[in-house]
Design a protein around this nucleic acid. Structure first.
Lengths: 240, 240
DNA sequence: GCCTTTTTTCATCATCTGATGAAATGAAGA
DNA sequence: TCTTCATTTCATCAGATGATGAAAAAAGGC
């Protein structure tokens, strides 16, 4: 059993994909990488990093497990690739949104306006971007709440745009303390990520009156909620 | 290799615990169950359900893996036991707190007062209850953000007290719509659980000016933040 | 002490897991 | 056609994983 000579391949099957489950056309090369990332994204979002196996990703993508290692290396590198792919798009969209807001409201910026410019791109992308983006936000929400390594991962990808938000708010409310702004942001991100991850909890909680997937309902409330929260924290008698 | 006779035990070692790592006195029976739950709680909180193995729990608790199955059954049942153990205490504490608030403020209840009565018990327990409670809140935060089964789990354990919060708020603001109250609660729970889970993100984000573990800072801001958010959502022009 | 029940330990199974070397295949250029 | 290189498949490894039966030990009742 130890040093057995490898037998030659039994059947040199002429490269027939095992009749993929309805996936469009046989992807290859760069497209195949995207297919793998899509499959990994959906599974990681639903079950977390440790809840997904390379084999599941391979089966979902319709490829061999070795191919995943060939393209992405170790499992954790695959996860990072999934996380990175959309993070850049997200950061760009947010930068553009905040640029536009600052440009269009010279001297008339409000806390709610800044916050809307910060959050709205995510809602729009989630509504218009397809299932992939919804999975991605669920993934980020999980990482955001992971004590072991969530903090570092979030910081690595998203700190710059958050610092920009805080600085812009500081410009709007020069007398606000940074501590208050950072804590308020912490509250904001908890609400925002939970709302974007569409866990389905509010559906049953509200007896069907609200739906996780109703991002219009989120849009109609989240900006006002967070802005009022910021204002209240800033205005509150300083206590440390 | 198939039907080999089992060899008699080699060394009938006289039951010596392998020199536990400094754990107090040798626990047994009911205490041992608690020891196992403590170990599982800390590990599940840090790494999630799939990120922890039975062997890790057994090693941390200083017991044999078979003993865990003996007391708790399958791995998922162990997880549920961890989740349930403190949920009842939590619900009781919240009920008592809201009872007291309603009793002491007849006709003078405010949105902020109700919210404080709802959240404060958690902050107090987290501050006074030791590391176990901190781990537990991190665990709940993770479950709260888990799409696959988080919604059902949260509902199973925490729906009643949430309904009570919503009803009390409805009593304070009779003209508020339930949809607004449920969405506002969704935002609140995202902020609250993230603040309680102490992920360490705010520490690096704020360059050391804020600390995840500073629950006093949370207390000084979270009630006001959420209350103002509720009021703003209620007052906002109805849009659906 | 003796017997019964509960608790704890030991050894092991069947399966799964991430990962890799090497062969096979295909595309592109000369 | 021949050669070269990137891509894809196959077979397999070494170790880990959840779980269990049965033996051993301890606890409790009499």
């Amino acid at each position: 059993m130890t040093s057995q000579v490898r037998a030659p391949r039994a059947q040199p099957v002429p490269r027939a994909k095992p009749a993929g489950r309805g996936r469009p056309s046989k992807a290859t090369g760069r497209d195949l990488k995207e297919t793998i990332l899509d499959a990994a994204e959906g599974l990681f979002a639903r079950h977390g990093f440790h809840g997904v196996t390379i084999r599941q990703v391979a089966a979902e993508a319709g490829v061999d497990t070795a191919l995943i290692h060939y393209y992405f290396g170790a499992k954790r590198e695959l996860f990072d690739s999934v996380f990175l792919r959309r993070a850049e798009i997200l950061n760009t969209a947010r930068s553009v949104s905040m640029d536009a807001y600052e440009k269009n409201h010279p001297g008339t910026m409000t806390v709610e306006g800044v916050i809307e410019a910060f959050i709205e791109p995510l809602l729009r992308i989630s509504q218009d971007g397809g299932q992939g983006w919804k999975s991605y936000f669920a993934l980020v929400a999980q990482v955001n709440n992971t004590p072991a390594w969530g903090g570092e991962t979030m910081a690595r990808f998203f700190d710059p745009v958050v610092h920009r938000l805080v600085e812009t708010l500081k410009a709007v409310r020069p007398d606000a303390e940074y501590r208050d702004l950072y804590w308020s942001y912490q509250f904001l991100t908890g609400s925002m990520m939970l709302a974007l991850s569409e866990t389905g909890r509010i559906d049953s909680l509200s007896n069907g009156e609200c739906h996780s997937s109703d991002l219009g309902a989120v849009r109609a409330r989240l900006f006002a909620y967070c802005a009022a929260g910021f204002e209240a924290v800033i205005a509150r008698a300083p206590q440390g």
